[in-house]
Simulated scan of single mutants.
Amino acid sequence: MDRDDEAKGIEDNPRFPLRVKHRAQVEDIIDLIRGHLVRMSPRELRSAAIALLALERLPFVTPGIDVSFGFQEARSGGNYAWADLRISEESFSLNIGQHFYDPDVGGDTETQTTFEAKEGDERCHGSIERWLETASQIADGSPISCEDYSDHESVDWIAREVDGWETP
């Protein structure tokens, strides 16, 4: 029996409440990340690989995954903006934000969750498209931000892929 025969499918994993209408947008997120792989450090590549694994398995939850990945754009005068995603066993969220700084007044930070899906919920909230617009503008040439808290020993790296988008 070869390794593929031993691999379990992910069809029994819990699901996020994503719908077929979200599929193309999730694929756009995957394409955005893949488009920047060539410029990533080994640490960033590892986080990108984990994020991509979880994104490619959506709408199914990938046990053991807990990673944030995104892009930051430095602006003049200490100002900056970002777009990041966070995916774990409990939730999938897309966030944008910016930090404003004025030497006379100080700084202020604004963060928005533009999309969120939680395992066990019946609905997801927000706009993937809004995040994609911001992330696409920020991504080119911007530093990568990533944090990986995944339990790498429990991640099933060889599970058979199952298309869960058509299942209600």
Rank of each mutant, 00 (worst) to 15 (best):
S136T: 14
E119H: 04
T109Y: 12
D12C: 01
L37G: 03
D4Y: 12
R160K: 13
D4Q: 08
R160S: 09
L94F: 11
D163W: 13
S136G: 14
D156Y: 06
T134M: 12
E73Y: 07
G107D: 01
I158M: 00
L55N: 00
S93G: 00
A24V: 11
P63F: 02
D2N: 14
S93Y: 00
G70M: 09
D163S: 10
K21T: 12
G9K: 02
P17K: 08
R57Y: 15
L55E: 02
A139F: 08
I33L: 00
E161R: 06
I144M: 05
R160H: 10
D104F: 13
L53R: 12
R123N: 15
D28H: 04
G35A: 00
W157C: 02
T111Q: 13
N13P: 06
G120T: 03
E166L: 14
F69H: 00
D4V: 09
D163I: 08
R123T: 14
E56V: 00
E90C: 08
N13E: 11
R19S: 09
S76W: 08
D148Y: 05
I158E: 00
G64E: 01
A117T: 07
E147R: 11
N79S: 10
D121Q: 12
R130N: 07
H36D: 12
D31V: 10
E133G: 04
R57I: 11
D12G: 09
S145T: 14
P103H: 12
Y149M: 09
Q25G: 07
R130P: 02
F115W: 03
V162R: 03
R34W: 03
G107H: 08
I29T: 08
V67M: 07
Y101H: 15
V162E: 06
F115M: 05
A7P: 03
V61R: 15
T114I: 06
C146N: 11
R39V: 01
C146K: 06
H36V: 03
I138D: 02
N79A: 12
D84T: 02
T109F: 11
L32Y: 06
W82Y: 15
R19E: 14
D104K: 15
N95M: 03
A54L: 03
F115Y: 14
W82I: 03
F16A: 01
V38A: 15
T113Y: 00
D102I: 15
C124M: 11
G70W: 05
S150E: 04
A54R: 06
A51W: 04
G9E: 06
W157M: 08
T114F: 05
F92H: 02
E11N: 14
D28Q: 14
S47K: 05
N95A: 02
L58N: 05
E129F: 11
E89W: 04
P42F: 04
S41C: 10
R46W: 06
D163E: 12
W131P: 04
R160A: 11
I158T: 00
A83Y: 08
D2P: 13
F60P: 07
S68E: 13
R3F: 10
V26A: 07
R43N: 11
A51T: 15
R34L: 12
Y80A: 01
H99P: 00
H36I: 02
T109V: 14
F16S: 01
R130C: 06
D31L: 13
A49L: 07
L55D: 03
R123K: 15
W131S: 01
S68Q: 14
D148C: 09
